[in-house]
Design a protein around this nucleic acid. Structure first.
Length: 233
DNA sequence: TAGGCCATCTGGTCCT
DNA sequence: AGGACCAGATGGCCTA
């Protein structure tokens, strides 16, 4: 089957649409797709579309593979069938010209298999890292809820970080307010800023940033993050 | 059935 | 030279 460029561009467009919609209203969107408790801490994770990494793999699948790699599904690994060698190129022809394909030395072929295996491993590591990220960001971790997509994971993590920064800043303001009577001249005691404020907190005004400033800064953040904000820009 | 998401293969580029 | 990283292409699975 030759999907062709139209299919590819269509997929890319769809993803860009998702990106745009998420950047404008991420929480609402994600909440709808992944459960109403998207921002409640749940116990455990790995809802997972069990479809991926099914654990059933061709017995002869790249014996040089690591154990982790063998978790991957044995999907159309052209490593296994020598008749089809890789996808077509952007012009519709084979990625390897017909003559290259027939004359391909065995050595070159094994080199290719090694490269493929490395790339697979790399992608598995990347997915492991994403799983780790999913496990620490708050969304509905339950078997009945679909696992966050990669893009949703990244966007939700970003929003979560921004939200935490905001919460930290507000806490600092409260502490500063409570301490006003004792230390009028020092806005924030050093002990209350143990994480390197400049690095963590994105506002130049540090503890004095207004809700308006934050709402302006987080133009890509979902509006629901700032429901409390009565200080509209 | 179309669209979303994903794993995999592949060639190109950059870095060590 | 070899490995890491990246993006394009392809096809499978799942869901609305």
């Amino acid at each position: 089957m030759n999907v062709g460029e139209e299919g590819i561009f269509h997929g890319a467009d769809a993803r860009m649409d998702e990106l745009k919609s998420i950047s404008n209203d991420a929480l609402i969107d994600l909440t709808q797709r992944y459960g109403q408790s998207a921002f409640s801490f749940g116990a455990g994770h790995g809802a997972g579309s069990a479809g991926r990494y099914p654990g059933s793999v061709g017995a002869d699948f790249l014996t040089s593979q690591t154990a982790k790699s063998t978790e991957s599904g044995g999907e159309h690994t052209s490593d296994e069938d020598d008749d089809s060698f890789g996808p077509v190129d952007s012009k519709g022809g084979p990625a390897f010209g017909a003559d290259k394909r027939t004359k391909k030395p065995k050595e070159q072929r094994s080199l290719r298999l090694n490269i493929n295996a490395r790339e697979r491993r790399r992608m598995h590591d990347l997915n492991d890292a994403l799983d780790g990220l999913r496990s620490v960001i708050p969304y509905a971790h339950s078997p009945s809820v679909r696992k966050l997509s990669k893009i949703a994971t990244l966007l939700l993590a970003k929003n979560y970080i921004l939200m935490q920064a905001q919460a930290l800043e507000e806490m600092r303001r409260v502490v500063a307010y409570l301490n006003q009577g004792q230390t009028l001249t020092s806005p924030i005691p050093a002990a209350l800023a143990p994480f390197g404020q400049a690095a963590v907190y994105p506002f130049t005004g540090t503890a004095l940033a207004t809700c308006a400033e934050k709402c302006t800064t987080y133009t890509g953040a979902p509006s629901s993050l700032f429901k409390h904000c009565s200080d509209k820009p």
